[in-house]
Design a protein around this nucleic acid. Structure first.
Lengths: 192, 192, 192, 192
DNA sequence: ATTTAATCGAGACGGTACGTCATGTCTTCGG
DNA sequence: CCGAAGACATGACGTACCGTCTCGATTAAAT
């Protein structure tokens, strides 16, 4: 606990970091169990008011903790081949959710969002962004003729993220490299 | 509230029904918002202890309320054609979740299961049963040669339920007859 | 902490006692410093909700703790002599406020009542009762001719309690037997 | 809010006045209810630090607001007659506490001092000064033989201020000219 | 004339207490 | 023994206030 210094009347960036770090740590350690505001504040060495001053709800803190640190490193590069791109995106998505501390934190976050309407809304935005990124990849493939002109891109996107979340939250089946490839390929085949 | 009569020292079936009815009603009215134990007990005109005597947790009551009433009417008939069977199952799944009061109740139930480990376990069983029923349909199709011998049935199952839950919970896209057909057909095509 | 047992759907008398005991103990130990609700609850081994269920405010608990235990043992006997009775009442008042744990607790209570309008009202009733008891004594003396017919009994009462509270709270002068006698005698002389 | 001008590195007298004015206004408006530091600062259009730079605590501000404005106009003249002087002092004390805005402000101040040890100490000094002024009057009377040589002056002083504070804070009886005269006379008679 | 230093308004900060809420356990009492 | 009622311990929630601290601007005194 290295004695944070005050920054006067402007927001203390160190406090912000301390909060997000603490939140991410607790989120990861909890692995699904609820994370309390008091706990975050105590862990960060911060007054509760500081949380409520800068984030509209507990959920906002948690989401910020996850997105602000775990870079949205899903690439969405354009390799010229739909199969290639799709494999990359799906594999990155699967892998990102397995890594520490993102995985457990993400699980906790989703759990929390079930109770916290504010967080649910934030999550909706978050996932919406991911969805359109993936849709972009598919749209490029369709333009190149790798997919049928009449295929339902939205349904394909939802098949990817549907499988992902379903398995991620229930944990009844793996989310490895192999499954990513299989899923990507089956989508390409299905839409061809 | 029609003045239930005591049944002495044997379990009062009417009380059980009153609880499940009340739970389902609240579950549906809440449409996602949390449903408390006190609320169920009051709505049912029942003591809280009666709940905990017969159900191990709040979640169990909620799940019982849903499954005990909303018949698991997903058919899983065997028509001889995979495409036919799959369309039927998917469409029934989609339609079942739209109907009142099942839809809103189911949404609430899932939300609750995020916080309640006990309910989560019950939900796991519940969805597990659905999954194996669907897998059965697909396995029959594969035996008939309608799917490639090496295709990943588990992945196909999860594509169906993944899309279903993903759209059902986020509500960003429809879950109608048309989407059901499209999804079923694309899976048959992909696995052929 | 001897494992209190629940008493079912009726108020738990043991819990009530535990709360009042704890409150009195803390009140006395604090000697003027504020006593928190959490502290009382923790000390009593009781949930905070139990406090708010039975007492309308923190102040009500504190006052109850003082009056419910420390018997209002100011005698107000009738000895036939005003001087005698007055000396007794004043001395008892002074002595009562010195004794442990009443003294420190009373000081804390008054302090709290400055912030808590509800408690202030309760204190008003409490002191009002004391005032009328003393007024009774003086009225009897006046009927016996020990006081002038036109003397202001209310003013005399307030001289007693005024001096008492003033010295009790500021602590700038003693409140012993000697002062009690002197005050009583001077009042008799003044009203004669 | 007439745009105060900076005075550079010397204390800004206007700011001081603004604080005291604001404090007195809030103190009077509150009539017993707590007055917060933030409220004073906002009302005065002043930073909180400016308060803590010049006053050691909130209480000091409040007391200063009261004493710095409401002149200590209790006369303590020497008319040659104890009865006369005493009547004057007591009546002035009573009247001073009734006037706006001193009365309500004083009430709030005492309430605050119950929670604020620093303010309590300041109040002790404040009342101590009043006490010795009154004691002076009585001592002069005793030297002139208007009081018995062995009478307890401190007790007499406390009877005056005791009655005053008791009635002022509880408000159960009036503090008018008539009561002042009666109290003063009874003390002279009692000590004669 | 330039530097130094103390003022000012503003408001974020860590901390403590508050009163409300929901959960699951427990006990009474009537049927 | 069942069922209704509801008190109980626990612990999270979001709000309010306190006194401290730092900012960036401003202006008087020191150099």
């Amino acid at each position: 606990m290295n004695e944070r210094v005050h920054t006067g009347r402007r927001r203390n960036e160190e406090a912000r970091r301390a909060v997000l770090d603490a939140a991410l740590r607790l989120l990861a350690d909890a692995d699904g169990a609820p994370v309390g505001v008091d706990a975050i504040a105590r862990e960060a060495g911060v007054g509760k008011q500081t949380l409520y001053r800068w984030w509209p709800s507990k959920g906002a803190v948690l989401l910020d903790a996850l997105t602000g640190r775990a870079e949205q490193d899903v690439p969405a590069r354009d390799s010229g081949s739909l199969r290639e791109d799709l494999r990359a995106v799906v594999a990155a998505t699967f892998a990102g959710a397995q890594a520490e501390p993102v995985g457990p934190a993400l699980r906790t976050l989703v759990r929390e969002s079930a109770r916290d309407p504010h967080l649910a809304e934030l999550m909706r935005e978050f996932t919406g962004a991911r969805r359109s990124a993936l849709r972009e990849v598919l749209a490029r493939g369709r333009e190149r003729g790798e997919l049928a002109a009449d295929c339902d891109l939205d349904l394909m996107v939802d098949q990817v993220y549907g499988v992902f979340w379903y398995r991620f939250l229930l944990g009844h089946a793996p989310l490895g490299e192999e499954e990513a490839v299989r899923l990507a390929d089956s989508l390409v085949r299905q839409g061809g």
